[in-house]
Simulated scan of single mutants.
Amino acid sequence: MSGLTLTFRGDAGTIVDMSSLLPDRLAGQTAEDIAGLPLPCGGGVTTVGEMFELSTGDAAEAMLIRPGEAVLHRIGAGMASGRILVEGDVGSHAGAGMSGGLLRITGNAGDALGGALPGLPLGMRGGLISVGGSAGDRVAERMRRGIVLVDGMVGVYAAGFMIAGTLAAGGGCGPHPGFGMRRGTLLMGRRQDAVPDGFADGGTRDWLFLHLLRRGLEGTGSWFERAGTTRAHRFIGDLAEGGHGEILAMV
């Protein structure tokens, strides 16, 4: 992978806000320019060069981030274009409010993945997020458009207040999936034993649009691309919000 590489070299457990380091914002800047940019870190402000070792490359082409033992919040938050690959785990609000581009995380993600930033009404509005591990609570909260793929499990209130878009969680979800959901799809890679609160049973069948979705996600390496079936049990809801959303549990 060519492009800009950021390798964390600070103290283990350091908390860093990464929201300013986006491919579209850094395009055309040299590694030296980026190293001198201010970076919120541990309750204060330092520079990118103090916290990361930088390689040469164009951020517009791609960014590779190696977090080490740091806690990196808001990676890809607000991203409009470009690609970010994270080799490791990330903190909260990764990809929050992003409107385009690709964010790929090989490890685990914290809360509010693809969700809404504090004080803002909408979550993810486009693009693709892929997570190789698990994710925390409120994944895809207030999501309006785009796709979030999580190979592992996601926490409580997954797809909460979703307006549109797709969340695909291979390991299933915690309590209260789809709470307040208006439209969109929450796809789970495991059977759902009970009807989720606020949803109605829609029966089991093979879904043609899942074949099309899988074809569109070829090359992502996600659990859904590897799934051997597109047969799923459908739940319709949230009925309190009109019942135009759906939870699909693979069977």
Rank of each mutant, 00 (worst) to 15 (best):
L122M: 10
L149W: 02
A169G: 01
G123V: 00
T220K: 10
P175I: 12
T230W: 09
L187K: 06
G178N: 12
T185C: 00
L212T: 13
G172Y: 09
G219Y: 02
A159L: 07
A240H: 11
A169Q: 02
R231S: 09
D151R: 05
A200C: 06
G221V: 10
G228M: 07
V139N: 12
F179T: 13
G242L: 08
D206R: 14
G178A: 15
R190A: 11
G171A: 05
V154K: 04
R191F: 12
V148G: 03
G174C: 02
E141G: 05
C173D: 03
W207I: 09
H176W: 13
D193A: 13
G245W: 09
L122K: 09
W207K: 00
V139F: 05
D201R: 02
P121V: 13
A168C: 12
G243W: 12
H211Q: 14
L208D: 13
T229K: 03
G237C: 11
I147S: 03
G152E: 06
H244T: 10
V139H: 04
I236V: 15
V195E: 12
A159P: 10
E141D: 10
G221S: 12
M143N: 03
T230A: 13
A168L: 15
A168N: 04
T204G: 06
G126V: 14
G221F: 06
A135T: 06
A169E: 01
F235I: 08
G184D: 03
G221L: 05
H233K: 15
R144S: 09
A240C: 03
G228N: 12
G184C: 00
A164G: 11
G180E: 06
A200K: 13
T204E: 15
G216H: 01
A240D: 14
Y157F: 15
G178S: 08
G174P: 07
A200P: 00
A169Y: 00
A168V: 12
G123F: 01
P175W: 08
R142V: 08
F161Y: 11
H211C: 07
V156D: 10
L208I: 09
G202H: 08
R191K: 12
L122P: 00
G228C: 05
L217M: 11
P175K: 07
V154G: 06
I129Q: 00
G221T: 11
D201I: 00
T229Q: 05
V154Y: 05
I129T: 03
G245V: 09
L213Y: 01
V154F: 06
D193G: 04
P196N: 10
G180L: 06
V148P: 00
H233T: 15
V195G: 11
A140D: 12
T229I: 07
I129M: 04
L217G: 09
I129Y: 02
R145L: 05
G237P: 04
D238E: 15
G132N: 10
D238M: 07
H233C: 15
A164C: 11
G184F: 00
G180Q: 11
H211A: 14
R182L: 02
S130D: 08
